[in-house]
């Protein structure tokens, strides 16, 4: 604790930098993903392109992006911009896929009822489609946020400042306390942001009981199945899609 009392200023600075590098990409990623997913939903060429693209992008290690991006963006290698852009790409990769699924799984009857009531397309999107897709979006955002917070620290390996700097510095100077403070601070940020998103999700989905929502909206519409098997299969499919989102997890 001695180390912390002497260095709390540095820790606070690094935590701030860490927060910016992990939260900004989530916001930017959300702003990009939602319109992109809406365009892709039901589109013949954009959908497979985005789904395949995001899947491939997700396979690229973050360190690779941190090192390659300066080449593309013309930034310095230690610039936080690289991290922000790279993580935004990951957030888009996670969110686009689940948002496309969410938009496509919306009950056609609900949409037609909305149109029949006189909703214009834009109003219908913000008034009906977006709220109904919220549970899946929140699930994706939570995964993206927690995984971002973990990935940001990796940037420290190539000299980008964040709480990860406490790890590299602590190792070099053999200060266990410094590393422990870094780990605790990182976990703290992850837990707090995750809970904030959970609360946000609950507030935005007051119209449904918690727990059932994500399952309904997460279900992919299966076109070639009929009969009672559909219920069993459908439930497994929907939970599976969500489980897939949830097992996305942190990566370096």
């Amino acid at each position: 604790m001695n180390w912390l009392t002497n260095n709390w200023h540095t820790v606070l600075d690094l935590a701030g930098a860490h927060l910016v590098q992990s939260v900004l990409p989530v916001v930017l990623g959300l702003l990009v993903s939602v319109p992109l997913a809406r365009l892709a939903a039901g589109s013949r060429w954009l959908r497979p392109l985005l789904v395949t693209g995001s899947s491939l992008l997700y396979t690229i290690p973050s360190l690779t992006l941190f090192v390659v991006l300066p080449l593309v963006l013309g930034t310095r290698m230690t610039s936080v911009v690289n991290v922000i852009v790279a993580l935004t790409l990951y957030v888009v990769a996670i969110l686009v896929r689940s948002c496309v699924d969410a938009f496509e799984s919306l009950d056609r009857d609900v949409l037609q009822a909305a149109t029949a009531m006189g909703y214009r397309p834009a109003r219908r999107f913000f008034g009906v489609e977006l709220p109904l897709a919220v549970p899946v979006m929140v699930a994706g955002l939570r995964v993206a946020t927690v995984s971002n917070i973990s990935m940001v620290s990796v940037g420290a390996v190539i000299g980008i400042q964040s709480l990860g700097t406490l790890f590299t510095d602590g190792l070099r100077r053999s200060i266990v306390a410094e590393i422990l403070v870094g780990i605790v601070a990182t976990v703290l940020i992850a837990v707090v942001l995750d809970q904030l998103l959970r609360l946000l999700g609950q507030v935005l989905t007051r119209w449904q009981r918690p727990g059932t929502g994500a399952r309904e909206a997460g279900g992919r519409r299966r076109r070639d199945t009929r009969g009672p098997g559909r219920t069993a299969g459908g439930a497994r499919d929907a939970t599976g899609a969500l489980a897939a989102v949830e097992s996305g997890g942190a990566r370096a």
């Binding site: 927690v146 995984s147 917070i149 973990s150 620290s153 990796v154 420290a156 390996v157 709480l163 990860g164 406490l166 790890f167 590299t168 602590g170 190792l171 266990v176 590393i179 422990l180 870094g182 780990i183 990182t186 976990v187 992850a190 837990v191 995750d194 997890g249 942190a250 370096a252």
Partner: peptide, 12 residues
């Protein structure tokens, strides 16, 4: 476990 930074664990 997911919230734990791997780099932190590695150095620790």
């Amino acid at each position: 476990l997911r919230a734990l930074p791997t780099l932190g664990l590695l150095t620790l």
